[in-house]
């Protein structure tokens, strides 16, 4: 029974990592950028929920505002910081992403102070335990798993079946050829950032309900772990991001269950090093052929 509840625990954490890792992988797939500001957008989302609920906004509406806020910021970052560098060397883009990440963290510090504040997680998902036989599950665990699986299924259908989804795949495989088809790549790239950010917004709410504290740095560790998940699964691969997210979630829960909770972060980065050494393309990656 302990084993089963740990598995569900891993599933909950893993689905949050998967949601965030999807944003990394989709953006990498489409413009070959490791968007290191992705985690910090999640932090901004946490402040949006904190402040709106603090101001008396209905929690459901606050969740919607969080997601919309994340979408708005991400699309804005792409438009202002990344798009002008579209034809610049990839390294300039990467450095810009790191710069945006630092900018968001420091901006949050300036606006909201560096103090850690409690997140109103209980207002969003009531703390309730549900009994399933001998198994006790918190409501937030169930909501997290259901929302994540729902969002991932919706994303899968969007990418496989819809016109914009197919265009996203086309742009990620060959941007120039996609332009020859008449695909407006600026629009497709904006939509990709928007979808990644919407998933991050959901991730923000679910993550903060699990660890209900907010400070300007909460996004960086979550972002880094989701990045490791994306690399483990194969950066650029959508199923890879999901597989990687769950693998990292389970690994963390396993390490904690074995009594080494102080080592969870270290284990995640050991996984990164091992992947980069032995299988740099990741579990489901497409190989590292350079685009010419």
């Amino acid at each position: 029974m302990l084993f089963l509840s740990q598995c569900i625990n891993g599933l909950q954490l893993g689905s949050i990592y998967a949601l965030v890792a999807l944003g990394y992988s989709m953006v990498y797939g489409i413009i070959r950028l490791l968007n290191f500001a992705h985690g910090d957008v999640i932090m901004i989302g946490a402040y949006i929920a904190l402040l709106t609920i603090g101001a008396g906004v209905n929690p459901a509406l606050a969740v919607v505002l969080t997601i919309l806020g994340c979408v708005f910021i991400s699309v804005l970052i792409e438009r202002v910081a990344y798009r002008p560098l579209r034809s610049a060397p990839r390294i300039s883009l990467l450095i810009t992403a790191i710069g945006i990440s630092l900018l968001l963290q420091n901006l949050a510090q300036l606006l909201f102070s560096a103090n850690t504040r409690p997140y109103p997680g209980a207002a969003i998902i009531p703390t309730k335990a549900l009994r399933l036989g001998a198994l006790s599950l918190s409501l937030s665990t169930i909501v997290t798993i259901l929302v994540s699986v729902g969002a991932m299924t919706a994303l899968h259908l969007l990418i496989q079946k819809t016109r914009i989804g197919k265009a996203m795949r086309a742009v990620s495989e060959d941007t120039g050829a996609a332009q020859l088809m008449g695909i407006d790549i600026n629009k497709v790239i904006s939509v990709t950032f928007a979808i990644g950010a919407a998933l991050a917004g959901m991730g923000s709410v679910l993550f903060c309900c699990r660890y209900p504290i907010v400070n300007p740095n909460i996004g960086s560790m979550l972002g880094l772990k989701a990045f490791v998940a994306a690399v483990l699964g194969g950066i650029g691969s959508i199923p890879g991001a999901v597989v990687g997210g769950f693998a990292i979630g389970f690994a963390e829960v396993l390490v904690t269950a074995l009594g080494f909770s102080a080592w969870t972060d270290a284990v995640v980065f050991v996984i990164l090093i091992v992947v980069l050494l032995f299988k740099p393309a990741g579990l489901l990656g497409r190989g590292v052929a350079e685009k010419v």
Binding site: K166, R169, A170, E173, D174, G176, A177, A178, L180
Partner: peptide
């Protein structure tokens, strides 16, 4: 285009 450039994964 030159080199066909079909979308290989589609």
């Amino acid at each position: 285009p030159e080199g066909r450039r079909v979308f290989p994964g589609l």
